[in-house]
């Protein structure tokens, strides 16, 4: 091992490990905001979204991100909204 190599290893050893708590905070803020958005939605929504995606994918090549299912509660009824962005080439 060269001297330079040795010195660099010693320096590595002495270096403090990188701080990680800010990663924890950032990741939590993102995932919790997402999960709070899903909180009031019924459990079947995610499954429905997946099934719809599979059906549509049978006919057109779509990208997973291109399907959005949303449930909006209004007084006395709910609106299930389905948004699919089809690529230009398929039309």
């Amino acid at each position: 091992m060269s001297i330079a190599n040795k010195i660099s290893r010693i320096l590595d050893y002495l270096k403090r490990p990188e701080k990680t708590s800010h990663f924890a905070k950032e990741r939590l803020q993102i995932i919790i905001a997402h999960e709070r958005g899903m909180r009031d939605k019924p459990d079947y929504l995610a499954a429905l979204q997946k099934d719809l995606l599979d059906v549509i994918a049978k006919y057109v090549a779509i990208d997973k991100e291109a399907v959005k299912v949303d449930l909006e509660r209004k007084e006395g009824f709910s609106v299930l909204e389905l948004n699919v962005t089809l690529p230009d080439s398929t039309l």
Binding site: K19, T20, S21, H22, L28, Q29
Partner: peptide
Amino acid sequence: RVARGDMLSLADVNEI
């Protein structure tokens, strides 16, 4: 460990 930056702080958890 919070001071070392290894642990979420009280302020972080409180904010979240």
